[in-house]
Simulated assay, not measured.
Amino acid sequence: MSASKKTAWAVAAAVFVPLVLAAPAAHADGKDSQDKQPKPPLAMSQVGGALLGLPGTQVRLKAGAPVLPKELSARSWIVADAENGQVLASHNAHWPLAPASTLKMLFADTLLPKFPKTQNHLVTVQDLAGMGEGSSLVGVKEKQTYSVHDLWLGVFLRSGNDAVHVLTNMNHGLQQTVRDMNDQAAELQALDTKVVSPDGYDAPG
């Protein structure tokens, strides 16, 4: 894997995961909802070091370093040096959680090289079938022709699950795309990642 790809994914892990996996706030009536929140496993994968396998926040602050902000609410996060991969701090780093739309980064990394941006595609009913209720949509319509470039704009700018589904069908369907994404995750050594749906919509497994 190239150095640039390693850097990009290290930055993505540090920046995007905390934003998407933030835990819900306490109830407005002041009652703490912590007891109802899911708890991390007591022991997790130790890939990257023993501390990463422990629940809770793990950091070894050097003298003079500022303490971590107390208001961090993400269920799982990791901060790493994008140049050398050294983990600076983490919180439930290996806790398996639903990825939501952060999975679209892996989708793009897997499928972007497959189709020239000038290629056109006539959208069919099958292309848009099977989207989860409440999915974010960019407004792709059946019987309309779109360029690959425009479909990717729908993925990146609006997190459009409809655009993801069209590109998925262009890639020979759901099962093939899931296999491709899991293979790409393995190549990137994203060993905690298990793809079930290309758009990141919650699904069993």
Rank of each mutant, 00 (worst) to 15 (best):
L97W: 08
S136G: 04
D109T: 07
Q144M: 07
T102W: 06
L137M: 13
Q126N: 13
Q144I: 09
L103A: 05
P113Y: 10
V123S: 09
L106V: 06
S135N: 12
L128A: 05
L106N: 02
G132K: 09
D109H: 11
M105I: 15
A93P: 06
D81G: 08
V79K: 12
K117T: 13
A129W: 12
V148R: 01
T110N: 06
F107R: 03
M105P: 04
N120C: 01
A74F: 09
F115P: 05
G134W: 10
F115M: 03
T110I: 03
V87D: 09
H94A: 13
A89F: 12
L112S: 11
W152G: 01
A74V: 10
L103C: 02
S147C: 04
H94N: 07
E133A: 11
N84G: 07
Y146Q: 02
E83F: 09
G132R: 05
A129V: 04
A100P: 04
H121E: 01
S135E: 09
N120Q: 13
N92S: 13
K114R: 15
A74H: 13
A74W: 08
H91N: 15
L103Q: 06
A80E: 14
Q119V: 00
T102G: 08
R75W: 09
G130W: 12
G134D: 08
V148M: 06
S101R: 06
N120A: 03
S147H: 02
A98E: 14
D150A: 10
A82S: 15
S101M: 05
Y146R: 03
D109P: 02
Q86K: 15
Q126H: 14
P113L: 11
K141S: 07
G139K: 00
L106S: 00
L103D: 03
A74G: 14
T110D: 03
M105S: 15
K104T: 11
Q126C: 05
L128D: 01
E142Y: 01
L97Q: 12
S101D: 08
L111S: 05
A108D: 02
V140S: 03
V123R: 04
Q126S: 15
W95M: 04
H121R: 03
K114E: 11
E133L: 10
N92R: 15
A108N: 06
H121Q: 03
P116H: 06
Y146K: 01
G139Y: 02
S136H: 08
T124F: 07
A74Q: 14
L128S: 04
P96M: 00
G139F: 03
G139E: 01
K143G: 00
V140R: 03
S147A: 04
A93D: 08
G134K: 10
V87I: 14
N120D: 05
H149Q: 12
D127M: 05
K143M: 12
D81H: 10
K141Y: 02
D150C: 03
G85R: 13
W152I: 02
W95D: 04
G132C: 04
A100S: 14
N84W: 08
G130H: 12
L151W: 00
T124E: 09
G139V: 02
W152A: 01
D127W: 00
S101T: 06
L106W: 02
A82Y: 14
N84R: 08
L128W: 02
S147D: 01
W95N: 05
G134N: 11
N92D: 14
N120R: 07
K117S: 14
A74C: 12
